[in-house]
């Protein structure tokens, strides 16, 4: 496998991996917000910062 192919595969994998990670994080976040009650951006950001 040449360098260009290796780099291309790596970039494609990273892009798909980033998409998957963002999707999973977002889905968990939406469920958590829905369970604990919708709120302002500041309240939700504070909750996220606490790892909630």
């Amino acid at each position: 496998m040449d360098g260009q192919t290796l780099l291309g595969c790596l970039i494609a994998a990273l892009a798909l991996g980033a998409m998957t990670a963002l999707l999973i994080w977002s889905q968990r976040s939406i469920n958590r917000i829905a369970r604990s009650g919708f709120g302002s951006a500041r309240e939700i950001a504070k909750d996220q910062d606490r790892g909630g």
Binding site: I30, I33, A34, F38, G39, S40, A41, R42, I44, Q48
Partner: peptide
């Protein structure tokens, strides 16, 4: 987010 983030009710906030 900057102007009205405190008064709107959000269901999702991006990281």
């Amino acid at each position: 987010r900057y102007n009205m983030g405190d008064e709107l009710t959000y269901g999702f906030v991006m990281p």
